[in-house]
Amino acid sequence: MSTPPQPSQPADQPAPQPQQPQQSAPEPAVPPQPTAYPYPHPQSPPAGGFYAQPAMVGGPVPGQPQPGNPYAQAPSFGPVPPAPRSGGRAGRAVLWAAVGAVVASAAWAAGVFALGGRSDHADLRGYTAPSNLCSGADYSSFKDEYTQDDSAPTRTSLKDKALDEGYCSLSLKKSGSSYADAYLTLQLDLHKKTDPGPEFTAGWKNYGESHSGYDVDRVEGIGDEAYLVSQDTVSGSSGGSRYATLAVRDGWVTYVMTYSLYLTSYAQDKNPPALTDIVTWLKTDTKATLRQLRD
């Protein structure tokens, strides 16, 4: 049996080549993962590493606008240059120099907002704290009522780079008294590192809210601000107490003068001075003391 003839390939047509499989497009590079660190870093941070943590725990990320907070908007110090692709030391040095400048500028701006532009220079206004406040203060208004001098008053003093302080506690005696009829305490503080203003106001202005039964009045004409705190529970000559404190702040200096009397059936003084007189004496002597402590 003869074999059927095979179809001949035309001489001018090339032989078919086997098909090559299509090459797929290169996979895109994995984009950098988000991080809480606000500035680009020339090296990829390790998972869970230091640069993956927020710059401030529980606070806003620097450079990111915070809704509802006008002081936490992105600082307008210009963009941070991108990390150099070469990864060389010179490029990294330039990057971190720029980052350091931005961080320093942001910290300075935050400090200005936080402090309101206030200088940290102590506003002592020429006051000095004497080593013996008992002899350096004026309480002469009380001496007409309490004629006996306290021969052994309690006094302390403190000299420190942050605070100068003087304290004096006196027993007040009328003529012929064997024991103290009343007490007078004085305290002077020169705050050399921190402004006592906000805490002074909060403590004395709101004294009546934390101590029931006391009256609190703003006093004008003494220092930057002054408060009178008083309580009078004396009933006849059988008992009660009479108390008055005048607290003054002048710049970063505070001065507190306190009178207290405790009347019992055994008290020698059956006719203590009226609260109105005590308040007048406190104001007069406080003004005189503040004047002489600035001389």
Rank of each mutant, 00 (worst) to 15 (best):
D189Y: 05
A129G: 06
H121G: 11
G166F: 08
L163R: 14
D160H: 09
Y127D: 07
S140M: 08
L190I: 02
S169L: 07
E199S: 09
Y183K: 13
H121Y: 13
Y207V: 01
N206L: 11
K193F: 07
T194C: 04
K205V: 05
A122E: 05
Y146W: 13
S169Y: 09
K159L: 10
C134N: 04
R125N: 11
D144A: 10
Y146N: 01
Y127R: 10
T201I: 12
D123T: 05
N206S: 10
R155L: 10
A202K: 15
Y139A: 15
W204I: 04
S171D: 10
Q148Y: 09
S135T: 12
G197E: 08
E165G: 11
L163M: 15
K205E: 13
A152L: 14
R155W: 09
C168D: 05
F142P: 04
K143P: 06
D164R: 00
K205D: 07
L172E: 09
S157N: 14
T201N: 11
S175P: 03
A137Y: 09
C134R: 03
K143Y: 04
D138N: 09
E145R: 15
S135H: 13
D120Y: 04
N132H: 10
A152H: 06
Q148T: 13
A180I: 07
C134W: 03
K205S: 13
Y207E: 01
N132S: 11
E165R: 13
S178G: 14
Y167P: 05
Y139N: 14
S178M: 14
Q148P: 05
G176N: 10
A137R: 04
G176A: 13
K174G: 09
Q187Y: 08
K143A: 07
A122F: 08
F200Y: 02
K161C: 00
L133I: 03
F142Q: 03
C134Q: 03
L188V: 11
W204H: 12
A180P: 07
S175Q: 07
F200P: 00
D195R: 03
K161Y: 01
K143T: 15
L170T: 01
G126S: 00
L172V: 05
Y207H: 04
F200M: 03
L158W: 00
G203R: 14
L188A: 08
P196M: 00
A202Y: 14
D164A: 01
K161S: 06
T154N: 12
K173I: 08
T154Q: 10
A182R: 03
L170K: 01
L158Q: 05
Y127Q: 06
T156N: 07
T156Y: 06
S169M: 09
A180K: 03
K161H: 00
L186W: 00
D138G: 02
Y167K: 13
